[in-house]
Design a protein around this nucleic acid. Structure first.
Lengths: 122, 122
DNA sequence: TGCATGGTTGCGTCATGATGCAAGTATATG
DNA sequence: CATATACTTGCATCATGACGCAACCATGCA
């Protein structure tokens, strides 16, 4: 679960502008150039460029160059699956009747306190 | 989809410490006091208190008072569903064959460009 | 080769937020 | 009522990051 709940993933989505860009690309459902995408929100093109770069770094977008044009695309199916993985991870660790709880996950389960003092989870 | 992809949700999860706290509570699968939860990570108790407050404000936690003790709990099933809703929203807008695309969602669908200039999506 | 187009990168500014300490509040307990 | 416990809040500090502007590549075209 600690793997599914990746801070980097949420970090890439916590900015409203970035989320707007991703949303725009999801709706477009096709590769779009940076200039096109920039029309979605009222910020400088350079800002859009950086945001798209960040989203790609987080695995939220695919990129392809075509001459001097750079096209970004949102892999909708993969993204949806990613969120479903998170949901599954939550269910697996804390699911009904503790059945799906993975024993290798130390301290996991309703009957145990995973937060013993000193366990910094770091 | 713009509703499912809520910046506030991701904002509440983008901080590593906050994510650790949520993760801890999910594993515990029971209400835990602030002091207990604080043992999960090496930050000041006041910081933990604030983070828990923020998570609750984002709807990620439930809270209950018992005398001077405050117990937080992670509603695992609800959280999992929330992520599945996001996945479903992505699929619905950009699903296979454009079938699930909601026509009321202006500009939605592969055949149209939702990012026409001036459309700030704001 | 010269110039326009499409993006990216450097840099300074500004706002937000994470953190710790200290003080404050509220509830038990003697 | 005094004191300890469990948290919360005010405040100062510091780091991160979003933004715009300007300068800079890199590609295409005349």
């Amino acid at each position: 679960m600690d793997r599914a709940l990746d801070p980097a993933l949420f970090k890439s989505l916590c900015d409203p502008t970035r989320l707007t860009l991703l949303c725009c690309l999801l709706k477009c459902a096709r590769p779009a150039s940076v200039g096109e995408i920039a029309a979605c929100c009222a910020v400088d093109l350079s800002v859009v460029s950086r945001h798209l770069h960040a989203l790609r770094a987080a695995g939220m977008l695919r990129v392809q160059r075509d001459g001097r044009t750079v096209r970004y695309e949102a892999p909708a199916a993969a993204l949806a699956e990613r969120f479903r993985d998170i949901a599954a991870a939550i269910d697996a660790c804390c699911g009904p009747a503790d059945a799906a709880c993975n024993p290798s996950d130390a301290g996991c389960g309703p009957s145990k306190n995973c937060c013993s003092p000193g366990d910094t989870h770091a």
